[in-house]
């Protein structure tokens, strides 16, 4: 009994030793990443160079044939272009929206916490559920948006149709030399998921709606971390409004905004749920992203090798983006 105590103590000491404790705590996470991210990635690289089909995890080695085959496919190139547009456009909306929201929500006012909770909800809701909600909102036959546009909104038959003022605005835009927008036809209302441009807009909107809360929370954290002394000093120096924002708040907020942007880009470029649920790549395969096209080719059409190749087109792009963003964030931090 007396001899057991030093042994227990030695074990306790080991737990307190950084050389042991640090690896012990990090190992599970490292193993998790290696097994669930690293191993599938290596397998995907291998499969992309084979002619493997469904149900096989091996195939004839064909080097880069799958990559060139994919490149020569119009749908693939359209998907690549869409992925870039989808990612950049939704992130632009998110950055601007989150910036505005964060500045509004960081100030103390009555009901601030409730409003913050409401804004967080899209992030907390399961993506499939919320996207199915939008699928119904944009439905081809029973869209609530279209219903609101083309039905008389005035009680008692007051003949107020929302599409009329919208058409008046669209008519004004149509006069601009470089823009052409159609008008809303009451009997043939816009098909939010049935026309390529509208479908892309719908997808971008829903993705931005999803990511916005995440970016807003990060922005709020960033703004809250700026010491009040800095604001006071800026005020003493006469910097107010936009000037203060441009020279003080923005530079200090930039590193954390970069983190939000990096995550947003990665989440968006690798997302397939929104597109899959809303359009399945339609109309006429015009809204496919690399993720959905890889799924369509590799899973639904049984071409595992080619599907893996398509999905890997994203990898170097995201790798470069990640490295650039981290370098940028570090430089800003250091300066």
């Amino acid at each position: 009994m007396a001899e057991a105590r030093p042994q227990t103590r030695r074990f306790r000491d080991l737990l307190e030793d950084r050389r042991f404790l640090a690896p012990a705590l990090i190992t599970p996470a490292a193993l998790f990443i290696v097994l669930l991210v690293g191993a599938p990635l290596v397998l995907a690289v291998y499969l992309s160079m084979t002619d493997a089909t469904a149900g096989q995890l091996t195939g004839k080695f064909i080097w880069f044939h799958n990559f060139t085959e994919a490149w020569h496919n119009d749908n693939f190139r359209r998907a690549l272009r869409n992925t870039i547009v989808f990612t950049l456009a939704s992130q632009a909306i998110v950055l601007v929206g989150a910036g505005i929201l964060a500045h509004a929500l960081v100030r103390p006012f009555r009901g601030r916490w409730f409003l913050r909770l409401l804004i967080l909800l899209p992030w907390a809701a399961p993506v499939a559920v919320s996207t199915i909600g939008f699928l119904w909102i944009f439905d081809s036959q029973f869209s609530v948006v279209n219903w609101t546009l083309v039905h008389d909104l005035m009680p008692g038959g007051g003949h107020f149709y929302l599409y009329r003022p919208v058409n008046w605005v669209l008519g004004g835009i149509d006069h601009l030399p470089w823009v052409h927008v159609g008008k809303i036809d009451r009997l043939n209302p816009p098909q939010w998921l049935g026309q390529p441009t509208l479908a892309m807009l719908a997808i971008i909107f829903v993705q931005a709606w999803r990511i916005l809360p995440f970016a807003t929370v990060i922005f709020i954290a960033g703004l809250s971390s700026i010491p009040t002394e800095v604001h006071d000093a800026a005020k003493v120096d006469g910097a107010t409004g936009l000037r203060k924002f441009w020279h003080v708040t923005l530079p200090l907020q930039l590193p954390i905004a970069t983190v939000a942007l990096l995550f947003g880009i990665v989440f968006t470029a690798t997302d397939m749920t929104v597109v899959y649920i809303l359009t399945s790549g339609g109309p006429f395969n015009s809204t496919h992203m690399l993720t959905t096209w890889a799924y369509q080719t590799g899973v639904v059409s049984s071409n595992l090798g080619e599907g893996a190749a398509i999905s890997l087109y994203l990898l170097p792009v995201l790798l470069v983006v990640s490295v650039l963003m981290l370098l940028f964030a570090r430089r800003v931090e250091v300066s």
Binding site: F142, P190, Q191, G282
Partner: peptide, 21 residues
């Protein structure tokens, strides 16, 4: 036809016809 046919789903024939449209 109208543009709705480009956003057709497997249920659209049934829904569109049964709604009387």
């Amino acid at each position: 036809m109208t543009n709705e046919v480009f956003a057709w789903t497997a249920a659209s024939n049934n829904q569109g016809y049964l709604s009387g449209r």
